[in-house]
Design a protein around this nucleic acid. Structure first.
Lengths: 249, 249
DNA sequence: ATCGATAACTTGTCAAACAAGTTGACGAGT
DNA sequence: ACTCGTCAACTTGTTTGACAAGTTATCGAT
């Protein structure tokens, strides 16, 4: 009603544990605390930061749930490896809530993996191309072994990502790949899915080896769309997701 | 060296607070607790779950840090709206950890923003297109006011991202936009930079309003490349690149 | 009936204590 | 001299109790 809604964001009252958590994340992101380091004990932290131990514990628990630190009873608290996969883990919860997020996820893969494929066509070394061709050969022979095929598939995407030479995109792509892996497992049981993937891989590799970024992009686009279609079909939810960009308040 | 590494993942000891947190997230994702709902008080929860209040508090704090719940002192604990943007918040922290090369970041922007532009051309509403056109008009008039122009530019990218209708990509793009904002400030002081950006914006909007995904993609591609070139040029000398000090002990 | 003050409730913080687990050092046995 | 078991100190996990700070709902006065 009244234009007073703008005044809401007062709540500038970060609790003590939030301040402690932010302090720690700052120390981590600034490099003063490195991945794998052991943090001071809760008592030391509480003394150093002038707060009680429960406050420190709540902060550490929050960081632990986000995959930033890991506590072992009696053993101390350690910073994790901070690999993007680990930090992206909480997102699987987010994706489990809204169905259209899955659609977003596949669109994102489409966009990002296509960019990676194009870069791979530009930057791949001969060695990497040879590796990819070998993986494609493996793929053709593994269409009857879903488990082995998925292992091959993961390595395929990994090599392509590395060949592209873009750390950031590679990490995002890897996280996206990991987020959908569960649904993927089901999809790979459907008939014809692995054969299609094997053909897609060949197309992608062919474009990369002939240094054709646009072709690689299109081939990867087809690949991701195939994966999306079969994954949604395998989810058996009956809730196909047509593009209905309506958003409810 | 020895193949004993396989034996590590024993740690089948989720702590009490983790169990409580998972219980709550299960209740939320299953729909038993809806967004906006008020949770039982900490005392009630501790009684119901047969754990102490600090355990409940640690669990709630963890969920709060992930953006799943929100506590107000004296007012109770509420489930958030669970919008992807909110749940995506930890991602910006993840991005801030690794120091990616500027090349990687700009290439990532190229890939992601182009995808967003294409989707915007597909999904933008008339209202959003009108808003973008107005922003473009503003841009032409603000080429002599770097600060105001940057505000307009941020809003421009925001509207395009929203128009694309992909929460995931939008958040990644927003994070990328924020990461390079410092360098951008310098670049916008160079002569001709803002004029170029204004022209780029027009091209992008024209493609979007004529529902031309490929055209929008190409226009955005040019835009990002212009930004990259001018930003790299403006960076000669004062480096604002994130730097991670290494220290032992 | 409207408004303000009070009481009950809820979260935030602190303190002290014990249980459970790990680590490192010391000493007995080989 | 080396290995191994034991023990002591430390660290995290959990519980209980208490009080401060803030919110909400009831109730009484105007």
């Amino acid at each position: 009603m009244t234009p007073l809604d703008k005044f809401k964001p007062i709540e500038s009252k970060p609790s003590a544990s939030e301040r402690v958590a932010e302090r720690l994340t700052t120390l981590i992101s600034s490099g003063n605390i490195a991945p794998g380091d052991k943090l001071p004990s809760e008592n030391e932290l509480s003394r150093a930061l002038h707060v009680s131990r429960p406050v420190v514990r709540e902060a550490l628990r929050g960081l632990a749930m986000m995959g930033i630190v890991e506590s072992r009873q009696g053993g101390g608290c350690y910073v994790t490896d901070l690999k993007p996969n680990r930090l992206m883990a909480p997102l699987s919860f987010a994706l489990s809530l809204q169905d259209y997020s899955l659609e977003s996820l596949f669109r994102a893969r489409e966009v990002i993996d296509c960019g990676i494929a194009a870069d791979a066509a530009r930057n791949a070394t001969g060695e990497q191309i040879a590796m990819l061709e070998e993986l494609a050969d493996q793929g053709r022979k593994l269409v009857d072994d879903p488990v082995a095929f998925r292992v091959m598939d993961a390595e395929f995407h990994e090599v392509v990502g590395k060949a592209a030479g873009n750390d950031f995109l590679d990490n995002v792509a890897r996280s996206l790949y990991g987020l959908a892996i569960d649904q993927r497992r089901k999809a790979s049981a459907l008939p014809g899915v692995l054969e299609q993937s094997a053909r897609d891989h060949e197309q992608i590799i062919r474009a990369i080896s002939r240094r054709d970024p646009e072709g690689a992009r299109l081939a990867m686009n087809d690949h991701v769309r195939h994966i999306r279609d079969t994954t949604l079909k395998a989810m058996e939810g009956g809730e196909t997701i047509p593009f209905r960009p309506r958003e409810g308040g």
